Amino acid sequence: MGFQALFIGGIKSGKSKNAETYTLKFAKQKPLYLATTEFFDDEMHERVQKHKDQRADKFETLEESLNLDNALQKQNKTVLVECVSMWINNMLYHNKTLEEMMTQLENISKQENDVIFVINDVSNSVISENKLVRKFVDINGIISQYIAQHSKEVFHVTAGISVKIK
């Protein structure tokens, strides 16, 4: 099957808003917003609330921080997965491996849903001295490449502007 689209960009680049607009235009019925964030502090609650306010009631919302493939298996609609980087963070926090992450993505690619993904582009930075940060950046890059390869369309977002690169 493959994936429909990937929106990749830096933090606060406008990728979420662009992905939401794309999803709403693409979907034939009210789409599902699959939220992946686990709440670690008050600042994360504020960020999530801004996203909720932004999308209003245009999406159905499902929160799932780890088992994306299982959550999507029960759906029969267009799905926006926001955000893959947070999902990777959660998976690492819960001691999951890259192989477990890739298995979930492979399972999702075999499902009937049209899936739009949002992921942070963390590749334009210096190499961190922190081992866990390096692992996160490496896995985020591997997963973004996999999703891009299997997506029909890929958009890079900077300063709120979405540019189609595939």
Rank of each mutant, 00 (worst) to 15 (best):
K96S: 13
L80R: 10
K96E: 11
I11G: 07
F40C: 04
D114T: 04
S144E: 00
A35E: 08
E129K: 14
T21N: 14
A5M: 04
H45P: 11
T37G: 15
N124L: 13
E46D: 12
K96M: 12
Q73R: 07
N18G: 11
K96I: 08
K30L: 06
E38R: 14
D42L: 15
N107M: 10
A27M: 06
Y146C: 13
F155R: 02
V126S: 14
Y22T: 03
T78C: 07
I108M: 13
Y33E: 10
L24I: 03
F3C: 11
F3P: 07
F3K: 03
K12W: 11
R47W: 01
S13Y: 06
L6M: 04
I143F: 00
N70R: 13
V118H: 00
Q4D: 12
I88G: 01
V126D: 12
L66M: 08
K164C: 07
N18S: 15
E38M: 13
A19F: 06
K52W: 09
S125Q: 14
I139N: 00
L66R: 05
G10P: 00
Q111W: 09
L98W: 07
K17Q: 12
R134D: 06
V48L: 01
F39C: 14
L24P: 00
T23D: 03
T36M: 02
L132E: 12
Q145M: 13
R47V: 06
Q111F: 10
V154D: 00
M86D: 11
Q145W: 11
Q104T: 12
H150R: 13
F7E: 00
H51D: 02
N120D: 08
T97V: 08
F3G: 03
I88V: 07
T36W: 00
N140H: 02
E82R: 01
V48M: 00
V115M: 04
S85F: 10
I127E: 14
L80C: 15
G141T: 07
F117H: 01
I165Q: 00
K131H: 13
L66Q: 10
I161Y: 00
K131Y: 13
V157A: 10
E43Q: 12
Q54D: 14
R134F: 04
I8T: 11
G10H: 02
I147K: 02
V137L: 05
S144C: 04
L32E: 01
E129I: 14
K166M: 06
A5W: 03
V79C: 08
L34I: 00
L105V: 06
T21H: 11
K17R: 15
L72W: 02
A35L: 11
H51L: 02
Y22F: 15
S128T: 07
M44T: 10
I139Q: 03
V154W: 04
T21R: 13
V79W: 09
T23R: 01
M44N: 06
V126Y: 13
G10K: 02
L98H: 10
I147F: 00
E99F: 07
G2A: 09
T37P: 14
T37V: 15
